[in-house]
Design a protein around this nucleic acid. Sequence first.
DNA 1: CGCCTAATTGAGTGGCGTCAAGTACGGTGG
DNA 2: CCACCGTACTTGACGCCACTCAATTAGGCG
Lengths: 244, 244
Amino acid sequence: MTELDRECIDATDAIPELCKECTARHRGICGALLPDELVAMNKISRQKSFKEGQTLIAEEEEFPFFASVLEGVVKLSKTLSDGRQQIVGLQFAPDFMGRPFQSESHLSVETVSDVRLCTVPRKGFEKLLAESPQLQQKLFHQTLLELDESREWLVALGRKTASERVASFLYMIAKHIPCVGEGKNSITFDLPLTRADMADFLGLTIETVSRQLSKLKKKKIVSITHNRHIVIHDLKLLQDAGQK
Amino acid sequence: MTELDRECIDATDAIPELCKECTARHRGICGALLPDELVAMNKISRQKSFKEGQTLIAEEEEFPFFASVLEGVVKLSKTLSDGRQQIVGLQFAPDFMGRPFQSESHLSVETVSDVRLCTVPRKGFEKLLAESPQLQQKLFHQTLLELDESREWLVALGRKTASERVASFLYMIAKHIPCVGEGKNSITFDLPLTRADMADFLGLTIETVSRQLSKLKKKKIVSITHNRHIVIHDLKLLQDAGQK
DNA sequence: CGCCTAATTGAGTGGCGTCAAGTACGGTGG
DNA sequence: CCACCGTACTTGACGCCACTCAATTAGGCG
């Protein structure tokens, strides 16, 4: 198959079956690859599924693979010696996970929901990266976006109140998650995180998160049913509540 | 001169005079450049000096140049609509300032001390960047380090107490700043930031920062004279106080 | 020496954390 | 089908850490 593919005149024919319908190929890292690079990537990559709450890589552990998130949400977190935890990043499809130029992770990587990944072994990926400036630029670009987001949350953790943080968080999720329903100004989706994860992300306690959500309900900005099912009635109001 | 340089057999002769003694050439971005790339960079770059407290680029403003920090400290900050401010990054020599793939800054860039920069016009630099995978990789690498630091501070702002934040901050500065003196375990330097800037960096108020510094003095971990002159008596104790 | 700004220190308040009790929901077994 | 249980979440009472407001001190500069 691969021999054949490389000789194809029409580039689209060269695209591996599995990649053809993949979201990561369009919006993700793989979109930066030339047809034969994509074939090479496809050859060494493997889709894997993980249940909610699994640890993919522990803090200070060597991590053996890179991966595109195809479905679900992954959290990156750090823990102080006495157990206090902070989530420092969330990855949604089609984000790319992994840290080039460093074999050991300085943060823990865990699934927050059921997750489907397209994994690539470390060595193989680094070889591809060295050979493809396109790929490197794409990764660089995504890293800059992550840095922007990280700085956005620095403002939230440093200067925003609890209610502003929770509102900002819901707004961010609404922007990143495939929504179930959508009306004018209103959006419906399932929250991928527990209250505990939200608290760890927002630098708050579970109780405070819960109280702030209740306030947002009382103000009719959101509805919440079954703990996780969120309807945002007015996205603009929510954004204002988050002090953009 | 440049014609001649390119033809030189010994690469070191090709290095522009100005770059020869530059710290940025060794530890900074320019270290990634080949001799003739360095010449090209040197041709379009210019050293500039700025006084403390100057705004280099305002939030939402287009920024016309990239730059290596040669001396001094630059702060990157964001401001909420009601004036609350958060510093989201500090840049020391020989850090590189600038945001590729985006013409408009989403943060404000200001000098915190007197600063000397080696500036490069945006267009010219982007051309060099496109032509030099080495340069791009170096920038990518630095961006990853910035992301790591940013995440480090997310933990501080989300989960550390005021006293831990201040201790962590002093420790970080001690690691980044050229120190005046150094004994076994002890370090001396001049704090580049005002209390107000420290507060904006740490998500605290001026008063709280001041109180926590006083506590560190009382514990004999640091001495402070003339507001800015810091002696850290025991670096290890300070690190512990910061809950690494 | 006097002025201005930066920093310290104190008193009082409030937002968020802590601790504890209560509620809703999903799953399992009878 | 319901009873039971465990987990996740909510809500309330109370306390403390960091903020606010205000007064004082220290340091830099003409």
